[in-house]
Amino acid sequence: MMQKTDALKEVRHILAVASGKGGVGKSTVAANLALALAKTGAQVGLLDCDIYGPSIPMMLAITERPTVIGEKVVPVEKWGLKILSMGMLATEDTPVIWRGPMVAGILQQFLFQVAWGRLDYLVMDLPPGTGDAQLTLSQIAPLSGAVIVTTPQDVALLDARRGLKMFQQVNVPVLGLVENMSYFVCDQCQKKHAIFKSKGAFRVAKELNLPLLAEIPIDPDVAEGGDSGNPIFISHPESEAALAYEKLARAVTTSLEKNVSEESLHLKW
């Protein structure tokens, strides 16, 4: 029998990108973070496990389907990333409606029966929310850590708290919060303006004793990049947003490397 963990043997870190609430920009963060990590020279995979609305294929303009070699699925490669999405399995006439138990099964396959090869980071775009499906995914995947994406609005922050609780339940370290659509840079005066109540995520991060890893500005080019399949990190590498993703990548890397340096245990029976 195939050893299931072999597929992940060469994957150093699996990082979950989560949010308590939908539409906060989780997939956009996951995709651009993966690109930012790859830019540092790391080998990076991107796994879209959002079964309800897989958006990675559109965001990265991927129309290819993964191939299967032997028993293993080979991820699609683009912009230096190895990418796999639930969305790649759906066609127009077979809409993706997975039931809960299937989700766990499919995710197991996505993790364990994929030729991921050697990866420094595998970024997982989780479905929005903190329900059973997310809990199961966090248990199946041997996660090294998670980041929680939020917006400055109060309700999103409340949801972020719930997200933190969920990861604590399964003992996955939450590396910190990412505040998306944090501010915008004014065309006229070039100053940063808060849109919602400012410093919201900052306060919550403090309260939850978590670092605020990055604040990503709202930028029409971000949305445009997502719609056109040309992510901002590639199309506008000098933009404030791209710099914020780079900062996030640095914070994530530092935090994950710190976690491994704690001695790991191994026993051969």
Partner: peptide, 11 residues
């Protein structure tokens, strides 16, 4: 029986 036992992350 077990073959190998490894720590995962720090949890």
């Amino acid at each position: 029986l077990p073959v190998t036992i490894d720590s995962v992350g720090n949890y």
